[in-house]
Design a protein around this nucleic acid. Structure first.
Lengths: 155, 155
DNA sequence: GGTTTTTGCAGAATTTAATTCTGTTGATGG
DNA sequence: CCATCAACAGAATTAAATTCTGCAAAAACC
């Protein structure tokens, strides 16, 4: 179904739009030495084919008090295929979980979790996450500061 | 300097724009039962004051082969203030590093790293990251699959 | 090899959204 | 009680997105 391979121009567009999605076609065209038409066609194609999954506003968490981030590493007790799938399903329903990765290493999953404060985080761990089946070892790494925030993938 | 506290309408706007930054003022206005003017004024203010830090296109990494993600936990050997600052400075210059968090827990930092493949990742670890001063213990968690990807903070 | 089709590009015309401007209301403060 | 400011609404203007037409080069076909 998916047989389109972005060329260099497409990848240049993606690189620019990852930094600033409010660049106009005119601006993109000027930067890439093309006219508006091919730029728009390429952007629309990249959207239609799912290379661009969405356009979002990034919020600065530091502007809001009551916002803490934690990376939570999780080891399951049962490692069957079904157990893995069920865990991912259930954890995806939790609003506090921003990201969920199945990883190699000492733990099975790495979760990015957001909470208002430590009390809310504790409540999440005990009363929401803790109620899931199949949870073994946990390891929380609370974010103190963030030195870099880069959404752009090198495409 | 920063004495503005977003009200509920502002936070509603942020919630919506975090999901889809291409909503027009007209659409936002309809959703929030206002006219275009106050919506635009609020959005512009949220941008000006830094609550909205940027608007970006999100790319689906799965559409590209040759893209692996790793979470790299780092323990420093020297924990002085200057050593911390220097590490964050230097690591922020590395293109492979998407995010860098100073965290609590067994390690000092958690880095999100992107590479084309295992060879490139190894090259990054040995020849780029490994050349930094003050590196103690390392622990790589390679991302196998991603179950959830949520950019929106609950504001 | 010549013809047709497709693809990428350019530019103009149209539609739509963003921006700017003007005015109103209601709350705040001297 | 009047002046000031903030939030809102709506109209006018400007700018961008979209759509349409056409051209030229590459690819596919006979």
């Amino acid at each position: 179904m998916e047989l389109y391979t972005p060329d260099q121009t497409d990848r240049d567009i993606l690189t620019l739009l990852q930094k600033d999605a409010r660049l106009t076609y005119k601006e993109l065209a000027a930067m890439l030495h093309l006219s508006k038409s091919p730029i728009q066609e390429r952007v629309k194609r990249l959207e239609r084919l799912g290379f661009i999954s969405s356009v979002v506003a990034l919020i600065d968490p530091n502007k809001f008090e009551n916002c803490m981030i934690s990376y939570l590493q999780v080891q399951l007790t049962n490692h069957s295929v079904n157990a893995f799938r069920l865990f991912q399903q259930e954890v995806s329903k939790l609003n506090e979980v921003l990201e969920c990765y199945h990883t190699t290493g000492g733990f099975d999953f790495m979760l990015k979790v957001v909470a208002r404060n430590m009390i809310a985080y504790n409540d999440f761990l005990i009363n929401k996450f803790g109620r899931l089946d199949n949870i073994g070892t946990l390891n929380s790494s609370l974010v103190i500061t963030q030195a870099k925030r880069e959404t752009a993938l090198p495409v």
